Amino acid sequence: MTGPVTIRFKGPAGPATLSVTEVGPNKVEYTVKSGSGRSQGGASGPGQGCITVLRSNGGGNSCGGLGDAARPSPQPDAVVIQATTGEDGTAILRIVSE
């Protein structure tokens, strides 16, 4: 992925969207909307990224170093989103659900 994009998917509380708002060398910023909830994440620097977990009763973010950025594990009744920075101005997005 090399530019802003919106991805629609089924979240635990119904329809959800992941909007990537900025992508650059070693940088990614995004917003997730699910039900009445909204979460923002962003990371910059080599090997950095964020993980957002959506549940029917809310969600949360964790950002920082992701090491080798392996695919996140599915969690019961949740959707896990991983956004990782890329050196070449791209971002890697993974959306995992059970």
Rank of each mutant, 00 (worst) to 15 (best):
D77C: 08
S73K: 14
G11I: 09
G65Y: 02
V5Q: 08
L66T: 12
G89D: 06
S44M: 05
G64D: 02
V5Y: 06
P76R: 10
R38W: 00
G42K: 14
L66I: 05
N57H: 09
S39V: 11
P46V: 01
G47T: 06
M1S: 00
P12H: 10
F9Y: 07
P74R: 11
A91K: 04
V23Q: 14
A13I: 13
T21E: 08
A69H: 02
Q75N: 09
L93F: 04
L93H: 05
T6P: 13
D77Q: 10
S44L: 02
Q82C: 01
A43N: 11
Q40P: 01
P46L: 02
T90E: 07
V53R: 13
V28L: 04
S62P: 00
T52Q: 08
R8G: 10
T2E: 14
S44W: 04
R94S: 09
L18I: 05
V53N: 11
P12S: 09
P12V: 03
G86K: 00
V96M: 09
P76D: 08
K10M: 13
V23D: 13
R94V: 08
I81R: 05
Q75H: 05
V53S: 08
G37W: 06
K33N: 11
S56Y: 02
S34P: 02
G49A: 13
V28C: 07
V53Y: 12
N26E: 15
R94M: 08
Q40T: 11
T84V: 15
E87K: 15
M1A: 03
C50P: 05
T90C: 06
S62H: 01
G64V: 00
G35P: 13
G60C: 07
Q48R: 12
G59W: 00
K10I: 07
I95N: 09
T85M: 12
E29Q: 13
R71C: 11
G65R: 10
L66N: 01
S97V: 05
G11R: 07
Q48F: 04
R38I: 07
D88G: 12
V79K: 02
A83K: 06
R94F: 05
S34N: 15
S97K: 15
L54V: 05
G3S: 12
G64Q: 00
V32M: 06
G47Q: 13
G47E: 07
I95G: 07
Q75A: 07
P76E: 10
P4G: 15
V96L: 05
L54C: 14
G58D: 09
N57E: 14
A83G: 14
G41I: 03
G59K: 04
T52P: 03
S62G: 07
P4Q: 12
G58P: 13
G35M: 13
Q48C: 11
P15W: 01
S62D: 08
I7R: 15
T85K: 14
A16T: 01
Q75M: 14
K27D: 09
T52D: 03
V23N: 12
S44T: 04
Q48Y: 01
P25W: 01
S97H: 13
T17N: 12
A43H: 06
S19Q: 04
E29T: 13
R55E: 14
I7F: 10
T2I: 14
S97L: 01
K33F: 01
K27Y: 05
S56Q: 08
Q82N: 01
G3W: 00
G35H: 11
S97Q: 15
A43F: 11
L18H: 12
R8D: 04
K27L: 14
A78I: 03
N61Y: 00
G89M: 07
L66S: 06
